[in-house]
Design a protein around this nucleic acid. Sequence first.
DNA 1: ATGAAAGCGCTAACAG
DNA 2: CTGTTAGCGCTTTCAT
Lengths: 334, 334
Amino acid sequence: MRSRVTINDVARSAGVSVATVSKVINGRYGVAAATSERVQEVIERLGYESSLVARSLRSQRTNVLGILVAEFEPFSTEILKGASRAVEGTGFDLLAYSGSGHSGGSVGWERRSLSRLSGTLIDGAVLVTPTVVEVRDDVPVVAIDPHRGPTGIATVDADNDAGAVLATEHLISLGHRRIGFLGGRADLESSRLREEGFRSAMAAAGLSVDPELVRVGGYKREGADRPAHELLSLPDRPTAVFAANDLMALATIDAAEDLGLRVPEDLSVVGFDDVPEAVAANPPLTTVAQPIQQMGVEAIGLLVDLIAGRDDVTEHIRLRTRLVERGTTAPPPA
Amino acid sequence: MRSRVTINDVARSAGVSVATVSKVINGRYGVAAATSERVQEVIERLGYESSLVARSLRSQRTNVLGILVAEFEPFSTEILKGASRAVEGTGFDLLAYSGSGHSGGSVGWERRSLSRLSGTLIDGAVLVTPTVVEVRDDVPVVAIDPHRGPTGIATVDADNDAGAVLATEHLISLGHRRIGFLGGRADLESSRLREEGFRSAMAAAGLSVDPELVRVGGYKREGADRPAHELLSLPDRPTAVFAANDLMALATIDAAEDLGLRVPEDLSVVGFDDVPEAVAANPPLTTVAQPIQQMGVEAIGLLVDLIAGRDDVTEHIRLRTRLVERGTTAPPPA
DNA sequence: ATGAAAGCGCTAACAG
DNA sequence: CTGTTAGCGCTTTCAT
């Protein structure tokens, strides 16, 4: 079992010290052309590539940007696509870390992951939907759609409030009066804002919100299964449901099918996010689109600025949401 | 600027040596209950989390699985979704690395990334669409859709040949005779097989392939732009185009629109992959679906087995493809 | 039960 | 121009 080739192997094989090899690798001054050439040759021959780990333990910069996520699902992977485009040509590599592995409990995953990677492996990090944003001043950090509204940390988010109003107004304008709301996670700011937008749009239209019709689905497809069924099994069930994200909207459609309800004839459904899966649904999901990939792009831009030194400026970027009318909304049944 | 808290800080604060702290963290024997408790307390208070980097430099196992990609695009992110589901409950964390950053030239990125991360940071790696699979015996590796067909390395791929036949037969059965082919990258096995499937299906139907109608798009949307335009600007242009992946099929649809051609009335288009973007297209793309997320799941399964010790069994998993008829194919114009 | 010390692969002073 | 030396944060013998 041939082990990986280290700088030592190169040094020995080239007949120089490891320091010299290091200099050659990093293009530092003070190496004779002939020596440099010989070392390069050995590096080539041995297929040597310096270990990111060892290198980063010693030096400050690694030119690697971290994207920390709880898991790879439709939202975070859209962020990744944007981030990937954004780093192109900047000289940074991207490292996405999903660290919910051992520590079971999901809360605080971002703090753990950040601690494990920062100060060493990565030059800075983008936190995707963190729950507990602890302000640390040792690593440049940008949060996307964080737990709390903008605090001392740089953030990128979408106009959740306005988007929720858009969705609710759409349903109201179609003639719906009994509208259900399937919320996300109480600990996420985006979830709170979407509910707030829903309530304010209802109030503005002079409609009351039946507490029975407001449920929590936890932003996950499986988690939304039960509350969706409950909502649709109510004696006086809603004619429309606004789900706080697409995954839960999709779960609601499934539940409707389960219960023999047709969408949109018997039940209208609106989601939030506009992940690729939304348009792939059958019928395609009416939803509030947020520019997720663009959020990734903006986050990387902010992070690169932060790393470049301007860590005193706290920036908040808020992107617009818009309603995308597709096939899951219609006037309520007569 | 408070720096990250290290094991030294904990040791000092708890009045013990770093060795003892290390033992406590890793649950090693030989620590008094009282001491252990005190150290735990300090760890908690200081919010200490051991550095993955330092830890991995010293020890063999990190419990982190790597997924190495050239960039985060629709295909690789679907793999990530599957992998993310697959690691759940295994105790492994996932680290996705996109390392095309500095080294411009894309060829060999997987070897570089692997060298940079392996032996230290990760216990094993999944290589997504690698171009140069060099068999190294020091790290467990699984390749998804590699450059060459199955060699000594564990691989997961789809039945590219059969899928291409499906697509071509579909077009032929609709009545198309002049069918164009937009190939991927000559250096990828999947690309070669898809072309082969195309050619054999054409031959089986007694149709000849006009060399003019076979172009190379490189699997990327931008790269496919020009060849697509060329194909559709030919004096005797094809009535249908089979693109070797969805991104290029989408580019072909754009090109058609550019040129005033309606899809599918004037031109039929078939893709390959069935990424979420395919169904989101307008009209939704007819394509050959490969179970991409499932490929991620299988790859992780294989990798975990390999890490568990059975590195002598070389396994190849091949998944089925199927045709998904949507809105971009129709009989040729009369 | 605890700590001192070596060393993982690498970079960065500093000498020579 | 080149090599020696000292760590980066951590784990692991091996003494004590």
